[in-house]
């Protein structure tokens, strides 16, 4: 159990619980099944993007363009649906488009030898212009309900959306902990030079990680379209901040080499709980990025300054 839930994960789970108790006391709506379901549904896109971000951070990279990549993939899925394409095919186009965009980001980083933060910041600008140009200043709306029905209509009592998200998590877990890709990715995150000396194909690992993260962002786009059936001009604007915050809150190192998927899941839940709870007690939603950003900075500060053993145990990252 200690292996399953390291110090950090336990702390984070406790933080979620405390937040839930405080908001439950402050708002009668918070603990209703309907509201909790809303929190879960709102966590979907962030969870998928954050899992990808976790892999990227562990590999020693980062991708601040994933929000825009999700936006572009959402436009692809939306327009395919509006063109009358079969909803299942349109849904699959999301991860495919995301993977292609991830390949672009990975290629720029791996072949251009550009630091990931700078390379993906450049792509963020390009992708955002792409979204503006494609949408032409208006929302993409009036998307038919085919995909929504497909993922939300229960099969044997379970909505396919839940199964798909479970499978995505499982796929990331298997990739990271049960195939050579995992240790190779973590070795590159620890030191790409040592990884190279050990005979690891560093460039291939970089490309693969960006492609996987891109595919996850693309899958997030599919769920985004299924849920909202529109694409606004500001789609994905806060996604990179939230995904990085969720991963780092969970215990993934921003310096690479270490990550925890359970921690990322808990980080996503905490962020969405906070946002939902603050909204219910009357804090304007404009404050949400402030709260998310503050949580990120506080955790990084605690990690850097974890002087006392007690504090260190609370924030210690799982091995």
């Amino acid at each position: 159990m200690t292996r399953l839930l390291g110090g950090r994960e336990a702390t984070l789970a406790a933080a979620c619980l405390v937040a839930a108790l405080v908001f439950a006391a402050a708002s009668p709506v918070f603990l209703t099944p309907g509201n909790l379901l809303t929190v879960l549904r709102n966590s979907t896109e962030l969870l998928l993007a954050a899992l990808g971000m976790t892999l990227l951070l562990a590999m020693g990279a980062i991708d601040v363009s994933i929000g825009m990549a999700m936006g572009l993939a959402a436009i692809v899925v939306g327009q395919l649906l509006m063109a009358g394409i079969d909803p299942a095919l349109a849904g699959i186009a999301g991860p495919l488009a995301g993977a292609a965009l991830g390949l672009v980001a990975g290629a720029v980083v791996a072949f251009g030898k550009i630091p990931a933060i700078v390379a993906t910041l450049g792509l963020l600008g390009v992708y955002r212009a792409g979204i503006f140009l494609t949408l032409g200043g208006a929302w993409l709306s009036g998307i038919p309900t085919g995909l929504t029905d497909l993922v939300a209509t229960p099969v044997l009592g379970v909505p396919p959306a839940i199964v798909l998200i479970g499978l995505a998590y499982l796929a990331v877990f298997v990739l990271l902990r049960r195939t050579p890709f995992g240790p190779h990715l973590l070795a590159v995150g620890n030191s790409d030079e040592k990884a190279r000396l050990s005979g690891i194909a560093v460039t291939r690992i970089r490309l693969m990680t960006f492609v996987v993260a891109g595919a996850l962002a693309g899958l997030a786009a599919t769920f985004y379209i299924a849920t909202y059936r529109n694409v606004s001009m500001t789609i994905g604007a806060t996604l990179p901040l939230e995904a990085i915050a969720a991963a780092v809150l969970g215990g993934t190192s921003i310096l690479g080499g270490r990550c925890t998927l359970v921690g990322t899941v808990l980080g996503v839940i905490l962020i969405r709980l906070m946002q939902n709870g603050l909204l219910l007690v009357g804090v304007p939603s404009l404050w949400q990025p402030v709260v998310t950003g503050a949580m990120l900075l506080i955790v990084l500060g605690l990690e850097a300054g974890a002087g006392s053993e007690g504090l260190r145990r609370l924030v210690r990252r799982p091995a």
């Binding site: 050579p180 240790p183 973590l186 070795a187 690891i200």
Partner: peptide, 27 residues
């Protein structure tokens, strides 16, 4: 050596023993 990986992972890094199931190399 990669400090963040286990002893076993380091010994086998880049030359892992795998079993392929449907093309996926499982450690």
């Amino acid at each position: 050596l990669s400090e963040n990986l286990s002893i076993a992972e380091n010994v086998f890094l880049g030359r892992e023993i795998v079993r392929r199931v449907a093309g996926v190399p499982f450690l």
